[in-house]
Each structure stands twice: as C-alpha cells, then as structure tokens.
Amino acid sequence: MKALLLAAALLLAGALPGFAVEPDEMLDDPVLEQRARALSAEIRCVVCQNESIDSSNAEIARELRLLVRERLAAGDSDRQVFDYLVARYGDFVLLRPPMKPTTYLLWFGPFLMLLFGVVAVFVYFRRQRGGAAMPPALSAEEEERLARMLAEGATEERGPKKA
C-alpha cells in the first residue's frame, strides 16, 4: 500500500509543470537543496503573474533562487528567509498570504459567507414548518358569537333533513 502511494505520488509529481532550477544553482547538500526547493515554491516571482520563483525563468527569479540558497547555506531559518524577502518586496512576494488583521477577511470571509447561508436556510425552514403565523385568539364576545352562529347553522342544516 505504502509503495503504491509512493508510486502514485511520484507519477503525479512527474505531471507537475517543469521547474526552472538549473544545475549550477543547486546546493551540494541534498537536505538544504530540498528546503530551498520547498521555500522557492512559496515565493512569488515578483515580475511574473502568480508564478513561483521555482518555476519561473525570469532573471529576478534566478537571482532570488540563488539568494534563498545562500541564506540557507548561511544558516538562516525558513522564517528568516521569508522575512528577508518580505522586508524588500512586501507580503506580495509570498504566494500564500500571511495571517494578520488586514487579511482576516480574506481568510475567514468564505466561512463567514457559509455561516450566513446556514443561518438563512435555518430561518427559511423554521418559518415554513411553523406555517403562517397564528392569528390572535378570539375574545370572549367573539367566542360567544361564534358558538351562536354554529348552533344556528346546525339547526338550519338539520332542518331540511328532518322535513
């Protein structure tokens, strides 16, 4: 099973778009290189529309790839590499928007809409089950009048049958 999953993952990986990383850019340390690849996939090539530096052939993307590897080789944490780039290009350089007060609406907006929909559906069905709102109860005077009318009607109804 595990082997099958691995095979499937490898197959799918092969189906992903080609990467722009050139052999001369790669680090000798495979662990660091792997980290660099993972980070690069999260960093926007700032002159491309929605392409990561890992898959872009732009000059600036190459420069940023080299920079990420230099920082990692110098012992930076992933966080430090991101911070370094954000300080220069802003949050725009991150493909995944960071969670902070200005982006709360972006992150939680869909759930807010879902909540709104759930409430709307709930209210709709409650109203349907309750049927039309009940009219106010009759006053004593009206009850008496109703009883009289029913009694009259009953005698009238029975009347012809007897005749």
Binding site: V46, V47, E59, I60, E63, R88, Y89, G90
Partner: peptide, 12 residues
C-alpha cells in the same frame, strides 16, 4: 551584477 537590485527591492 544583480544582487543590489534585490537589496533595494527592485523588480526590474
């Protein structure tokens, strides 16, 4: 050669 542009947040 390229790196100064990144330091300045330059894209092109």
């Amino acid at each position: 050669p390229g790196r100064a542009a990144v330091e300045w947040g330059v894209t092109g």
